[in-house]
Computed example of a mutant assay.
Amino acid sequence: MKKITLILSLFLMISCNSQDKRPLIGETEYQQKLNASYKDASKSPLKKKDLKDFKGLDFFPVDSSFIVTAKLIKTENAPTFEMATTTDRKPLYKEYGILKFSLKGKNLQLTIYQSQDDLRDEKYKDYLFLPFTDNTSGEESYGGGRYMDVLTTDEKSDGTIVLNFNNTYNPYCAYNDRYSCPLTPRKNHLDIEIKAGVKVFEKH
């Protein structure tokens, strides 16, 4: 009888622990990691009232047609400039190059940038900044546009880079106005609906 009681006790302990460690919400590893970071109060951009009821970000369905191969044309001798933001802050950037690609039968291009501050940070020195707006901006997606992280190490030997629009995210300003976020340059508007990646955040 004692043996049975012990087994039942162990089973209950394991059940309780497995309930505490609920699976992360998200269709892909990217979505799960993003949701996990937003759920973490120590690094989440969410306001306390939004964090309290946070279950997970709202994403468009994952769609492989929004994974494209782009040709990177690097910008030679690009000048350093001050990027406009939602505040008075003016971070320094350089135009890294032009990305040309086809999506849904349209020939499109985006300008990709390199933060001069990130170059001095070992953790982020390989990161490039790709902001864009599209025809869902202000409706199904955040009006200020969305961002995509691209790494210099992503570039292949033939000068191409794979862009996955399913792995796009909102600037922190979409969740909390205390942040200062780079504004998407007008030339980075895509005249197409990018129904991939994160959707607009419905604040409580």
Rank of each mutant, 00 (worst) to 15 (best):
K47Q: 14
L72F: 04
L190A: 10
S65T: 15
E76H: 02
G197S: 04
K203C: 01
D63Y: 05
L6Y: 12
D63L: 03
D53S: 13
V162F: 06
L183P: 09
L72I: 06
P45V: 09
K71G: 00
F60D: 08
L190T: 11
Y30G: 01
K199R: 15
N167K: 04
C173Y: 06
T87D: 04
S42V: 15
Y30Q: 00
N135S: 01
S102A: 14
K199D: 09
D53H: 12
T152M: 10
I194T: 11
R22L: 15
F129T: 15
K90R: 13
D40V: 14
M83E: 09
E122T: 13
E29N: 06
I194H: 08
F66A: 00
D177K: 12
T86L: 05
A174D: 12
Y179Q: 00
S180W: 05
K125I: 00
D58K: 14
F54P: 07
D53N: 15
D117L: 07
L110Y: 03
A41Q: 12
I194V: 13
F129Y: 15
E76K: 07
C181S: 13
R89T: 15
P131D: 03
A174W: 10
Q109Y: 10
E76I: 04
R120M: 09
D154C: 08
Y113M: 06
S102D: 13
R120F: 11
D20G: 07
R178N: 12
F60G: 08
Y142C: 04
D158W: 01
V150Y: 02
D63G: 03
G26Y: 14
C173K: 02
K125Y: 01
V198M: 11
I4W: 06
E139A: 01
G138E: 04
L57N: 02
L99T: 12
K2A: 12
L128E: 02
C173Q: 03
K187E: 10
S102N: 11
I4P: 01
Q19F: 03
A41W: 11
T152A: 08
L8G: 07
T184Y: 03
Y179N: 00
M148Y: 14
K203Q: 08
A36V: 03
D63Q: 06
T5A: 09
N188H: 09
E29K: 08
L6A: 15
L57Y: 00
K104E: 10
F132A: 08
G145V: 00
M148D: 10
D154F: 15
T28G: 03
T87Y: 04
Y30D: 00
G197V: 06
G143R: 01
K33A: 01
L110G: 01
L183W: 13
I73V: 11
L72R: 06
T85N: 01
K33G: 00
S137Y: 01
T5P: 02
E122L: 11
R22F: 11
N188F: 13
L57I: 02
D117W: 07
T133V: 15
K156W: 10
C16A: 10
V62L: 13
S9E: 09
F101W: 13
L72K: 05
S180M: 03
L24K: 12
Y169H: 06
T168R: 13
A196M: 12
K123Q: 14
Q32W: 02
L103H: 13
T111W: 07
L110P: 01
R186K: 07
H204E: 09
K43I: 11
